[in-house]
Design a protein around this nucleic acid. Structure first.
Lengths: 125, 125
DNA sequence: AGACATATGCTAACAGTTACTATTTTAACT
DNA sequence: AGTTAAAATAGTAACTGTTAGCATATGTCT
């Protein structure tokens, strides 16, 4: 993998954000500093950075995947209406990963546990 | 809510399926019996049936939402590559819903806990 | 500096889903 | 049964998040 200015900017933008940004949010942020960065480049780099383990891809239902610079093991809660994401420190039973692996053959990925619901704000509407 | 033949077909199709079908899969199934049912109708009815609690919407990352006629509390595991879904009987700590509610304000929905990973088959490729 | 691989920006394409609209179907009331 | 109003339908077009294709530009190695 070759160095590129754009890739560095993408990585920094995610790491500097506390919002679990989407690709579009990263793009909007970066346009201020690199006005002609391309959305495709943002997507491509978010993908390669996730695949190489430098970022975490949070596969989100309905609202577009989000990215996380915090590589420590943790889970996420998402509001299915507004798409907002919270970190949550849920301690799944010790053997959950093994049980899933045995029962289904699926290897659970980092950040792979997503809990969906409806947030207070959206419930009011 | 007024009765409609199409809505009944949609509900039956999901309940009769053990595959957690997507909207498109329900549509393809129903076309055999109701050749000019519309995809929009399938989507609309899956939504209203989920909202009224007669089906469960499983918010799935990346692969399109799935629907479940089994209303009993259970969680799901999904392969992020092929999109296949398994039921899994994970007992989250008793207070998980309350903890999430207190920490984030999010009310966890039924079927809202989704664990993503990579299945054996896809790992081979 | 020269050469080659890789990355970029741009545009077009694609999948899943929702919105729109004219027509049809259901349900309630004569 | 016939009338009417609300709600649902089929079909199409539009919208969003994402990926692909291609000509140009940039990073790396000698």
């Amino acid at each position: 993998m070759k160095y590129s200015r754009q890739r560095e900017l993408v990585e920094q933008a995610v790491q500097a954000s506390y919002n679990h940004p989407t690709a579009a949010e990263v793009y909007e942020t970066l346009r201020l500093r690199a006005p002609n960065i391309s959305l495709g480049t943002v997507y491509r780099n978010l993908s390669v950075l996730s695949e190489s383990g430098r970022l975490l891809r949070l596969p989100m239902p309905d609202t577009g995947d989000r990215f996380d610079g915090n590589l420590a093991e943790h889970s996420h809660v998402v509001c299915g209406v507004c798409g907002k994401v919270w970190d949550v420190d849920i301690t799944l039973p010790e053997d959950t990963r093994e049980r899933v692996k045995n029962d289904t053959g699926v290897t659970v990925s980092s950040g792979g546990i997503v809990i969906s619901g409806l947030c207070d704000e959206c419930a009011k509407l």
